[in-house]
Simulated assay, not measured.
Amino acid sequence: MSPPSSRPAPRRLGLLRLGLTGSIGAGKSTVAALLRARGLTVLDADEQARLVTLEPEVLAEIEAAFPGVVREGVLDRAALAGLVFGDPERLTRLNAIVHPRVRTRMVALEEAAAARGEAWVVQDVPLLFEGGLERQMDGVLVVDAPLETRVARVVARSGLTREEVLARDARQMPGEEKRRRATAVLDNGGSPEALEAQLDAALGRLGVTGTAREPARPE
Rank of each mutant, 00 (worst) to 15 (best):
G25Q: 07
A32V: 09
N95V: 00
L15A: 06
P215V: 08
V107C: 08
L51Q: 15
L91V: 03
V74N: 05
L15H: 01
G82C: 01
V84N: 09
E196P: 04
G14N: 00
A49H: 04
V58P: 06
A96Y: 09
E148C: 04
L186Y: 10
P67M: 12
S23K: 07
V185W: 07
R103H: 09
E110C: 03
A201K: 04
V84D: 06
G86H: 03
R17G: 00
G175D: 14
A26G: 04
D169F: 03
E214A: 14
N95S: 01
R179W: 02
A60E: 15
G159F: 04
L34I: 04
T21K: 06
I62D: 12
R157S: 06
R168P: 13
A33Q: 15
P4A: 07
R7M: 06
E110H: 02
R90Y: 07
R11C: 02
L40E: 09
N95E: 05
A64T: 14
G159D: 01
D169A: 15
R11M: 01
L109F: 07
D124K: 12
A145G: 04
E55F: 01
R17C: 02
G27E: 11
E89G: 04
T41N: 11
R162N: 02
A119P: 00
L75F: 12
L109P: 01
V69Y: 02
